[in-house]
């Protein structure tokens, strides 16, 4: 029988909401305003998180922020090893990124390979003035020299752990758990 996995709550709904509020403020500070800001969520849960952060900034600053979605499946470097991912999500970038400040939003930062693929993909859509990275959870364990500019919560993990991010829109509740 496999050992029972242990689940620890890292962020409950209220803590997650506070973390996102703080991240929204930090995005505005990082970008010195909202003039050329574009929020780009990585499929799947990064898209929902980007939407939330965008709404918070819009409410605070009284502006409309463009946001996009990026599916990095076709930019992965492991097709041969993990096989094709049958369902590829939507990629949608509503504005020309040239000259913009693009903020990539994802739920969990781990090896950095997803972000590497996202940077490659964004480069095919234009030349942003600047690209920043904003993640809800940084779990360490990087395999590439990539760091986040804005982090909701940092947590130490070991390989084999799973960080399970749930969002209301897709999972019915807001919660981040460490599964070990």
């Amino acid at each position: 029988m496999p050992p029972k996995s242990e689940r620890t709550i890292l962020l409950d709904a209220r803590a997650m909401s506070r973390a996102l509020q703080r991240m929204a403020v930090e995005v505005t500070e990082l970008a010195h305003g909202t003039a050329d800001l574009v929020l780009i969520g990585i499929q799947r849960r990064g898209v929902e998180l980007a939407e939330r952060i965008a709404k918070m900034i819009e409410k605070e600053e009284g502006v409309t922020l463009p946001r996009g979605a990026l599916d990095i499946t076709l930019y992965r470097d492991d097709l041969e090893t993990v096989g094709p991912k049958p369902v590829i999500g939507e990629t949608r970038l509503p504005v020309d990124l040239t000259g913009k400040h693009a903020v990539i939003v994802d739920d969990v930062l781990y090896t950095g390979r997803t972000v590497r693929a996202a940077l490659d993909e964004l480069a095919d859509f234009g030349r942003p003035q600047r690209i920043s990275l904003c993640v809800l959870v940084d779990r360490g364990g990087r395999e590439l020299p990539i760091q986040a500019d804005i982090v909701g919560q940092a947590v130490k993990t070991v390989p084999g752990d799973r960080v399970d991010v749930q969002v209301e829109e897709l999972d019915g509740r807001d919660q981040v758990e460490l599964v070990r």
């Binding site: 076709l74 097709l79 049958p86 369902v87 590829i88 095919d124 859509f125």
Partner: peptide
């Protein structure tokens, strides 16, 4: 279903992915 997202690739300014 897999063909669906590939439609969008052909609408991009750079119609190419490294898959």
């Amino acid at each position: 279903d897999t063909a669906e997202p590939f439609k969008e690739v052909s609408e991009r300014p750079i119609k190419k992915v490294p898959a």
